[in-house]
């Protein structure tokens, strides 16, 4: 089931990585290129439906995710970085497998077949297939200066009906420890960032985000590393406490460890300045 040479994947960026979290997208592409992986962006992909659509219209949210599946060439796995996108793509695939008549109707709508044997995986699973030892051997910089809180967000492994092909909890720690960083596990790593409430009810989100940030500082962390781009944004824009630590996208620290040099642009887009810490990593290299 692995792709030819295990190196080629279809890639679904999703709306966040396309816009607000471009730095995550760019660093992911950079890291993947260094690793010799080809992430081929899904041609003309659309939004997965996000958290808003399933409440308003089940058929529309199903259709949105299904269109993406219909665009994916069947012979290579489809990779997502955003946990929410992954969740919707996967659960839609499962639904279409179990409801062939719905699948046929959607295929007719798009005039394209939907292959229900398509593999939909997260980038962490790609790394798992790549192998930790290989990754470690490729590292050009040590992440030793980073004392990070692994912040997975809620969607990667929590929804009860997720298709569990892979146990994600612990992946961030394992990978970043292998690259030299030290995990800080006494912070509120499992507290929710607030998702869309950050737009609709910031007064509700700010105290929660501040709690997360304060707990990270109190536990001695000097950064948080997130898998989810929305978490990264919410943790940065909604924290109002004086003592804050930067919040990195996982892909950024990965690419940094692999020796990427075009990081200025990524870190320029952060709201909590990560440069002092990045300088330590680069200098220590």
């Amino acid at each position: 089931m692995s792709s030819p040479r295990g190196q080629e994947y279809s890639y679904f960026p999703g709306c966040s990585l396309e816009t607000t979290a471009q730095e995550s997208n760019r660093s992911l592409m950079r890291g993947a290129a260094i690793m010799g992986l080809r992430l081929i962006e899904l041609e003309d992909w659309n939004c997965c439906g996000s958290s808003s659509l399933p409440t308003l219209s089940k058929p529309a949210s199903l259709g949105m995710a299904a269109r993406n599946l219909s665009l994916a060439p069947p012979h290579r796995p489809l990779v997502a970085m955003c946990p929410r996108c992954l969740h919707y793509l996967r659960s839609t695939l499962k639904y279409l497998k179990e409801h062939p008549r719905k699948r046929l109707a959607l295929e007719k709508k798009f005039d394209r077949p939907i292959d229900t044997d398509l593999e939909v995986i997260h980038f962490l699973e790609v790394l798992d297939r790549f192998g930790l030892a290989r990754l470690e051997a490729m590292a050009r910089r040590s992440l030793k200066p980073l004392r990070f809180v692994p912040y997975y967000g809620c969607t990667l492994y929590r929804p009860p009906h997720l298709e569990r092909h892979h146990y994600f909890q612990g992946d961030l720690d394992r990978i970043l420890v292998a690259l030299g960083a030290a995990p800080v596990n006494r912070a509120l790593a499992y507290r929710c960032c607030g998702s869309f409430l950050s737009v609709t009810n910031p007064e509700v989100v700010t105290p929660v985000v501040n709690e997360i940030m304060t707990s990270a500082v109190a536990a001695g962390a000097n950064c948080l590393v997130t898998i989810c781009a929305m978490c990264q944004l919410n943790l940065e824009i909604r924290s109002t406490v004086k003592k804050r630590v930067p919040v990195f996208h996982f892909s950024e620290v990965l690419a940094l460890a692999l020796g990427a040099d075009d990081y200025e642009d990524w870190f320029d887009r952060h709201l909590v300045n990560p440069r002092p810490l990045v300088q330590q990593v680069v200098a220590g290299g």
């Binding site: 709306c15 396309e18 816009t19 607000t20 659309n46 939004c47 439906g49 996000s50 958290s51 808003s52 659509l53 409440t55 308003l56 219209s57 529309a60 949105m64 869309f196 409430l197 737009v199 609709t200 009810n201």
Partner: peptide
């Protein structure tokens, strides 16, 4: 919480119009 429903509907309209979310427009 009508404001939250308004938000979801704005997102949906953006999806219908562009196929993707346009965050500035939604906001």
């Amino acid at each position: 919480r009508p404001n939250i429903l308004e938000f979801h509907e704005e997102v949906a309209r953006s999806l219908e119009r562009y196929g993707r979310t346009h965050k500035l427009g939604i906001m």
